[in-house]
């Protein structure tokens, strides 16, 4: 099923999403990958404040290539999500409702997705040029020194993603592969 939804992403909206849905996201999302997650966790451990709001927000695991003049961003596709698994349950418990990445998630992340009524989307890996066309604004909001790994606030219009793990714990990576397996 095809849907158009807005971000920030409210929990009652997440409930409507099912593994396999093709979704176009419009609104504000944030980027964070390995090094930013490490710093966010360190800030949490120290009781410090976070650089981005988590409640009802979506994090895109993405580190772009540099923008050419006159463009908001360079190539901008997803990175492998499992490297963030260690940090993710804590962020979900603090109100994060959505993540965009690629690849499998751990059992602990799936449990936290279900517990919190959140959702994991995949964007197509290796389609960074295409995906960049859905990003209309990009601004570094924290950890500028991390270069491509800095935290960015993005305005996106119809960013194409696919629901992989929904709030009931269905996992498209498992079900879809079984459907086409002929071993």
């Amino acid at each position: 099923m095809e849907r158009h939804i807005q971000t920030p992403l409210a929990r009652d909206e997440v409930k409507e999403l099912h593994a396999g849905d093709y979704v176009y996201l419009t609104g504000t999302i944030y980027t964070a990958r390995d090094a930013a997650h490490k710093r966010i966790q360190e800030a949490l451990d120290k009781g410090g404040s976070l650089p981005i709001p988590l409640e009802n927000n979506v994090i895109y695991y993405m580190g772009p290539s540099p923008a050419r003049e006159g463009r908001p961003i360079g190539s901008a596709g997803p990175t492998t999500a499992s490297r963030m698994d260690k940090y993710t349950p804590g962020l979900l418990d603090l109100g994060l409702t959505g993540m965009i990445g690629k690849g499998r998630r751990s059992a602990a992340v799936k449990e936290a997705i279900v517990r919190n009524g959140a959702v994991y989307f995949a964007a197509v890996g290796g389609a960074g040029a295409l995906l960049s066309k859905s990003i209309i604004r990009s601004e570094v909001v924290a950890y500028d020194d991390l270069g491509t790994e800095a935290v960015r606030r993005l305005e996106v219009r119809d960013l194409p993603v696919i629901v992989v793990i929904d709030c009931e714990g269905r996992d498209l990576y498992e079900t879809a592969v079984r459907e086409y397996c002929t071993e």
Binding site: G20, Y22, M62, G63, P64, S65, R68, R71, G74, S75, A76, G77, T79, V124, G125, G126, A127, G128, A129, L130, S132, K133, T148, P160, I162, A176, Y180
Partner: peptide, 27 residues
């Protein structure tokens, strides 16, 4: 869905070459 993804990857290659945006952000 597989065809849709492969179609996106065709579009991606076209955009990469025409607009000089790297095919993938992980260069």
């Amino acid at each position: 869905l597989g065809r849709q993804i492969l179609g996106q990857l065709q579009d991606n290659l076209k955009i990469a070459g025409e607009d000089m945006i790297p095919i993938c952000q992980d260069t």
